[in-house]
């Protein structure tokens, strides 16, 4: 890629990301507040179910000692939402980009990248609010924001890889879109978001799946630094890196192979 087209392409990515951020909240009075309202609603619902209906004891952070279900839940929900919303929106964005794809030549992967970037920005805002809540709740998370950022960057690579794969496949088989809706729902429960993967009352095999599935690894690591205030082990880091790099490489490979045929298939 020449320098000139690299610059042009960066500009395009910027505009597309801006569009993603803008179109979502364009006609709303409360604007950005909506972005926070969605996870908060989920938090209220699951807190009531967990604490009042099923009468469970909130997991205790170790060594932080914090014992607060809503905060525990949000530490898992925010990264998971980033992942599942990014993939879902990316699928739609490539499909909805048919008008562009059929008429002009541009790097199609930008339709995916821009979604992930916009969702990443949204997640950062959500995490800032959560950090304040955690500090009020007694967890001094400020120094832990650095490892958090590292984990989120790898999670972004992972998310991008999955989004590229599904978005490309959806051009050829439209039901990938629906498939993803169901898969995301399954993943939500398979990932330790509303429960603690270390809870000894859960069967060991299920715990292993929950903690070491791709989404589970990322969320466990985020919880480690934000809720428990401890560093994930080197092994956990290695798993995260392997997951993110392989997903990114695979997604890039699939997308690069399929995208030259998008224009005629759409």
């Amino acid at each position: 890629m020449s320098l000139r087209s690299a610059v042009a392409s960066r500009n395009l990515l910027y505009l597309l990301s801006l569009k993603e951020l803008r179109t979502r909240y364009k006609k709303s009075i409360m604007g950005w507040a909506w972005s926070l309202l969605n996870p908060l609603t989920q938090m209220v619902i699951f807190s009531i179910i967990f604490l009042k209906v099923f009468i469970q004891i909130p997991p205790t952070g170790h060594p932080s000692g914090i014992k607060n279900f809503p905060l525990f839940f949000l530490c898992g929900l925010l990264p998971f939402n980033f992942f599942s919303i990014s993939v879902g929106v990316a699928i739609g964005n490539v499909q909805g980009g048919a008008g562009l794809i059929k008429k002009v030549r541009f790097p199609h992967e930008h339709l995916v990248y821009s979604v992930v970037i916009a969702q990443f920005v949204t997640m950062l805002i959500e995490f800032s609010v959560l950090s304040v809540a955690l500090i009020i709740g007694g967890n001094m998370v400020l120094p832990w924001l650095v490892p958090l950022l590292v984990i989120l960057v790898f999670m972004t690579l992972f998310t991008t890889g999955v989004a590229l794969t599904f978005a490309a496949a959806n051009v050829f088989f439209h039901d990938v879109n629906y498939l993803w809706g169901i898969l995301a729902q399954l993943l939500f429960y398979a990932t330790p978001i509303i429960y603690d993967a270390n809870n000894p009352r859960i069967p060991r095999s299920l715990r292993l799946i929950a903690a070491h599935s791709p989404t589970g690894s990322f969320i466990t690591a985020v919880r480690n630094v934000m809720y428990d205030l401890t560093m994930p082990s080197l092994r956990d880091f290695a798993v995260i890196i392997v997951y993110s790099l392989s997903a990114f490489a695979f997604g890039t490979w699939v997308f690069t192979r399929l995208s030259p045929r998008f224009a005629e298939e759409m």
Binding site: L12, K19, T23, G96, G99, L100, I101, K103, V104, R105
Partner: peptide, 27 residues
């Protein structure tokens, strides 16, 4: 190409101008 450029239907004319010009390689 046939009937119109690559426009994004949800975006305004202004945003589409910027988008298209960016695709065509303008800063």
């Amino acid at each position: 190409l046939e009937l119109g450029a690559g426009f994004h239907p949800e975006l305004s004319g202004r945003e589409n101008v910027f988008l298209n010009a960016a695709i065509l390689g303008m800063g």
